[in-house]
């Protein structure tokens, strides 16, 4: 099932990207690569019988990290919504645009809401007394993947959104979500999910895997967010340098123009830090 979905998604993406390139638009090939890689990670996480190589809860944690964190990061970095908006027929695009503007979607992609759904769901999964079937449900990993993708999508905000949340909100949400993930991971060291009886060694390995594995993905998310800020600052800087070169070229009133440019620069810097890049 996962394999069919993955092959279909990869084929669609590559077809769309190819159409874009044939049309003469630029679409980095690296994006195709991360998209495929993301789906490959998802398939490996869900389909490989990790339980035959690893103790049961550690095996589950490998699948959880792959499907819920690594695959969503790769898939979101490939900017599938941007690609879809640029390639689908007009009628479909209208539907897609109104979907991205729908009230419920706008609510779900608010970073704190997406974080509560993703990490809160994880807390429920590991800490609430759920019926035993839930932990072995075939819908568990697709659900982890969907929640992880929603969270990654909202924190990275790479695809166009009506009201892109500002950098402080996205960075703050990432920090709180990463902390909640680390606390949950460490607490599993001492006590497994209620109603389960995993061996202590299994829990300890799984707990450390979740703690440090989560770190790696969260660092990658932080690098993407910080790079957006860095690029926005760079654009602001180039504008100022252009302005002051123009001011020097005219010769007249150089000091005043340079002072204005510097003031505009500082003002802009403040705005880019506070607002969206």
């Amino acid at each position: 099932m996962t394999v069919v979905a993955a092959v279909l998604c990869c084929a669609l993406y590559t077809y769309a990207a190819g159409r874009l390139r044939r049309r003469g638009d630029a679409w980095a090939r690296g994006r195709d690569a991360v998209w495929w890689l993301g789906w490959a990670v998802l398939v490996c996480s869900v389909e490989v019988p990790w339980g035959t190589y690893l103790p049961p809860f550690t095996a589950h944690t490998v699948a959880h990290l792959g499907a819920g964190m690594v695959a969503p990061l790769l898939v979101v970095v490939a900017r599938p919504v941007t690609l879809a908006l640029r390639t689908v027929p007009v009628a479909v695009r209208r539907g897609l645009v109104s979907l991205t503007r729908a009230r419920v979607v706008r609510f779900l992609v608010l970073p704190p809401v997406a974080a509560v759904i993703d990490v809160g769901g994880l807390w429920l999964l590991y800490r609430a007394p759920l019926p035993a079937g839930v932990h072995h449900s075939p819908l568990l990993y697709p659900h982890l993947f969907a929640a992880g993708t929603l969270f990654t999508f909202s924190v990275l905000a790479l695809d166009p959104l009506r009201h892109r949340p500002g950098l402080p909100l996205r960075a703050g949400t990432l920090l709180v979500a990463a902390a909640a993930h680390a606390v949950l991971a460490k607490s599993l060291w001492a006590a497994g999910p209620p109603g389960t009886a995993y061996a202590a060694a299994d829990l300890r390995m799984a707990s450390q895997l979740m703690y440090y594995g989560g770190d790696l993905v969260e660092i990658a998310l932080a690098v993407v967010v910080a790079h957006q800020w860095y690029r926005a600052e760079g654009r602001a800087l180039r504008r100022v340098r252009m302005l002051s070169t123009v001011a020097e070229g005219t010769g007249d009133g150089h000091d005043q123009s340079a002072a204005d440019a510097a003031a505009a620069h500082r003002e802009h810097g403040r705005r880019t830090v506070a607002g969206s890049p």
């Binding site: 960075a171 990432l174 920090l175 990463a178 902390a179 909640a180 993930h181 680390a182 606390v183 460490k186 607490s187 703690y211 770190d215 969260e218 660092i219 932080a222 690098v223 910080a226």
Partner: peptide, 17 residues
């Protein structure tokens, strides 16, 4: 645990920032 989780996450994100 909560304080550790928070500072652990903050340590990595602070490095990147």
């Amino acid at each position: 645990l909560v304080s550790d989780g928070f500072f652990h996450a903050f340590g990595w994100l602070a490095t990147v920032a």
